[in-house]
Design a protein around this nucleic acid. Structure first.
Lengths: 227, 227
DNA sequence: CCGTTACAGATTGTTGACAATCTGCAATCT
DNA sequence: AGATTGCAGATTGTCAACAATCTGTAACGG
């Protein structure tokens, strides 16, 4: 009965275009559909076993979300992001991250109760095992957990959108997963940030986070220049 | 020929769903379609002289933009925003505004060259003439011009989205246009902020802006409690 | 009299078909 | 040979029809 209830809830909550959009979004963010590649309606609809209508509706949602670019009478393409744009996105992200730590440093108990150390421990485990994809996933999840802890829906939405676009840029730079040393540095940064937050040291947490984000930005920009 | 060229450009650039979305967006932000009201496909399609398909696509875009809420098999409704949510939105907006002034205070020449005084003078003129709708429009335009001056597309997008949602909340509170004294206070605030920006006084501009946004937030929250 | 159920109208969800547009290739002309 | 034109195939844009779902109403039974 529990399974039934959840199935019913799934059918009621998400419409078909919504599910298609979610699926495509995952594929784009995972890099299965690389930036610049075209999404053609007919093969996609056939592969998903639906008609073109719902697929087109999903496209509109993805466009508004900034993940695809629609060219009239030509087709829809996974969005490409110029280095300047990526820089601009990083700038906004930094402002939001500062808001996040400002809010979280005010509620250290909530941060401690969130069990973020476990996530970091997992990241370290993956790094040791050289499972860099999983490690990177943990690192992304860390930031997402932080923003979710703020409980501010507008902040969560805005932040996730930016992170998604940056993920796109990372794929475009053919660096879907950062290299091992970058990953380890990130995990260490996260540990320091978490410690500062749990101690309620707002200024320290903000400084660490700024350095953390800036380092990530520079790494990616340098990578793109070389390539 | 120039007219022809622009007509062609219009047809090429914007698709039919895009135009419908733009039109609906305007109507929602102008308060013609109040929060909570339903958008039914058939009458809308009939009124615009198109079929339901493009209208549905426009709905998806509006949903992703946070302007409507889609309930499966029930319909789409102009989004309503709870006071808590509005507060949360204000919080993010403030963080973005701080980024805006930080950036603009670094380029006072560009700010001076933007001709914002003219906009403020117009706002004052409208206030004197008791044309409060036009005055409010100028005030909104002032903020929009500021964010555009940053030249950061991600910042512009994020900011506009928040402002749109706040506009929705204002309509919902039956305060589509602030009262006369609020408007005049806003114009005065804008003058002070502009002066600080032109002088490159970053800290002063940030302080003024924070007070300005906070005042606006409190005004709206109080209004909603009374009503 | 109140709650339940069956039904009719209306609205949304999805589909397949048709029209308009684009793309690549081959034939033609200079 | 190189550029231009015309055409066939493929893809997108739009539409109208059909199926599924919801809403309000009226009949029915307790």
């Amino acid at each position: 009965m529990n399974a039934h209830a959840s199935a019913i809830a799934l059918l009621q909550s998400r419409s078909l275009p919504g599910l298609i959009q979610q699926q495509l979004e995952r594929m784009i963010l995972d890099g299965e559909l690389p930036p610049g590649s075209q999404l053609t309606e007919i093969p996609l609809a056939a592969r998903l076993g639906v008609s073109r209508g719902p697929v087109r509706e999903a496209f509109r949602g993805l466009e508004e979300k900034g993940l695809v670019r629609v060219e009239k009478n030509r087709g829809v393409f996974v969005r490409t992001i110029a280095p300047d744009e990526a820089d601009a996105i990083y700038e906004v992200r930094l402002a939001l991250e500062e808001l996040i730590v400002r809010k979280l440093a005010a509620v250290p108990d909530a941060v401690r109760a969130a069990g973020l150390e476990k996530l970091l421990a997992e990241a370290e485990k993956f790094a040791k095992k050289a499972n860099f994809a999983a490690c990177h996933e943990c690192n992304v999840a860390f930031h997402d957990r932080l923003v979710c802890l703020t409980g501010n829906p507008a902040l969560i939405d805005s932040y996730r959108r930016l992170v998604g676009e940056l993920s796109l840029f990372r794929h475009q730079a053919h660096a879907s997963i950062p290299d091992a040393s970058s990953l380890r540095a990130s995990v260490a940064d996260h540990r320091a940030i978490l410690a500062a937050l749990c101690a309620g040291e707002r200024a320290m947490a903000a400084r660490l986070l700024r350095r953390h984000v800036e380092a990530s930005r520079k790494r990616l920009q340098r990578l793109l220049k070389n390539q």
